[in-house]
Amino acid sequence: MSAVDVKGPKISLEGMVTLEHVNRVYYMGGHTIHALKDISLSLETGKLVVVLGPSGSGKTTLLNVLGAIDKCDGKITVSDLEITRLNKKQLTKYRREKCGFIFQFFNLLPVYNALENVEYAVELASKLSRKETTNRATEYLRKVGLYEKRHHFPSQLSGGEQQRVAAARAMAKNPALLLCDEPTGELSVTEGKQVLSVIQNMVKERPDVLTILVTHNQKIAQIGDVVIRLRSGEVDSIEKQISIPAEQLSW
């Protein structure tokens, strides 16, 4: 994996992602909420890691600090890079080039069609030519089964389709980390399975990528290679398992 060309520490994502004594405390309305309590983890690339827990367990916070969209105390190292020490500009570049996000509410740009949404991320993260950018975006839309609908705008796509576009957008820029936050939360079972299937396929295709999927649904957790259970901001358990193909799931 190439180094990121920014001032300050060089970013490289070869090897492990580690979290050491990570804490995240919120102060809301006079109350202190300890969202993450002394989390220490070591994660390998090429795996689909499912973070499972009930509401308020800290799973989304964990995802956010890994994606550098939330701050924390402690040390997060992605390969040999301590992202918790990066400045704002470096964090932006880190997110742009190394992280792919799949949000619960899809968060596509409504003014762009499916192809353009994917192109945006590719163009932002790479120095490809316009043609190469379009080819890459088209290729990923084909992978998620939306080649025919590449010129459709989000308002013309179903929720599942929108989420698949979001998956294509996240993966097309060749991230090192794919961060999925309740990607099926807004979808029907059928649509959800399609999206999970797409994510599973991407994990298979890209052994250099660490995929982290956050869910509160135990059944969905079956698609992961590793399941981290969180409870009240603490790691309850870490289990390796044999993943079940998304098509076989039912919830």
């Binding site: 994606g67 969209i69 500009k89 932006t92 570049k93 997110r95 742009r96 080039e97 992280c99 996000f101 949000f103 509410f105 968060n107 740009l109 409504p110 945006y120 991320a121 932002l124 993260a125 957008r169």
Partner: peptide, 14 residues
């Protein structure tokens, strides 16, 4: 707001 936040999240600089 959400779109801008998304753009910033996926790496658009300020």
């Amino acid at each position: 707001k959400r779109e801008i936040a998304t753009l910033l999240t996926i790496g658009t600089d300020n």
